[in-house]
């Protein structure tokens, strides 16, 4: 038996089956990040609220989803919910599970970002006559984003790999498809090397995007900052 089969390696590298699995991994990651960010923002804002009716449910949510393994959450969503008459296909269950889980982690990251904006700036903004929505838009969020983006990047990198856990409910993402192919020719090393290359390609691509994001949110802090924030708004103000 050969140690390494180059023919098999290139066959898997060019495999459309594996490539489409990687696309599924990518899709799961992008969706769960976006949905998790939106839901995480809501949970973070709720958790910071002075009203117990808002902050307690948010605390409970974070406690629950960070305190249990994603694997368990996925199995409960996929096999448990049908017992209550909620039937989900594999993809929907995977998307929901990943998004709910990601939201809990992102909520803590976003909350830390929002907390980093000094109360003095919020008071000053109120005194200037800005309303709460305007304060969030012009003061809190732009400053919070700068704090949020680096840990958000780590979270997305982790999520790219964590999506492989959805294979337990037979979601056909990259890892699951590799496992399926193993049974065909038993070229385990070649196949999983290809799988590793796909993950590396995706995490490397994300690293590049993250660097750009960081530059973008840091742009107001660079020395030669050009006024970017007020220009379009001033135009809106003129026409309204």
């Amino acid at each position: 038996m050969q140690i390494w089969n180059w023919h098999g390696f290139f066959m898997y590298l060019g495999s459309g089956f594996i490539f489409r699995g990687a696309l599924v991994t990518l899709m799961l990651t992008v969706f769960a990040t976006c949905a998790g960010f939106v839901l995480g923002t809501v949970v973070a804002v709720m958790k910071r609220s002075r009203h117990k009716g808002l902050s307690l449910p948010a605390r409970f949510y974070i406690w629950l989803f960070r305190g249990t393994p994603l694997l368990v959450q996925l199995i409960i969503i996929y096999t448990g919910l049908p017992k209550f008459g909620i039937r989900l296909d594999v993809t929907t269950a995977a998307l929901i599970g990943l998004s709910l889980n990601e939201a809990a982690y992102l909520a803590e990251i976003i909350r830390a970002g929002l907390d980093a904006v000094s109360p003095g700036q919020i008071a000053a903004a109120r005194a200037l006559g800005l309303e709460e929505g305007q304060i969030a838009r012009y003061i809190t969020f732009p400053q919070a984003l700068r704090i949020i983006v680096p840990p958000l990047g780590n979270s997305v990198n982790g999520l790219l790999k964590t999506t492989s856990i959805t294979s337990v409910i037979s979601m056909e993402e990259l890892l699951r498809r590799a496992q399926l192919l193993v049974q065909e020719h038993f070229m385990v090393l070649e196949l999983f090397t290809v799988t590793a290359i796909y993950y590396l390609a995706m995490t490397s691509a994300w690293d590049m995007i993250q660097r750009r994001l960081e530059n973008y949110v840091n742009r107001p802090y660079q020395r030669t900052a050009t006024p970017v924030l007020l220009e379009p708004e001033a135009n809106i103000a003129v026409t309204s």
Binding site: G120, Q121, A123, A124, A125, P220
Partner: peptide
């Protein structure tokens, strides 16, 4: 304000 309350991310 006593502590100015300037917006650090804005020029």
């Amino acid at each position: 304000f006593q502590s100015f309350g300037l917006f650090d991310h804005l020029t």
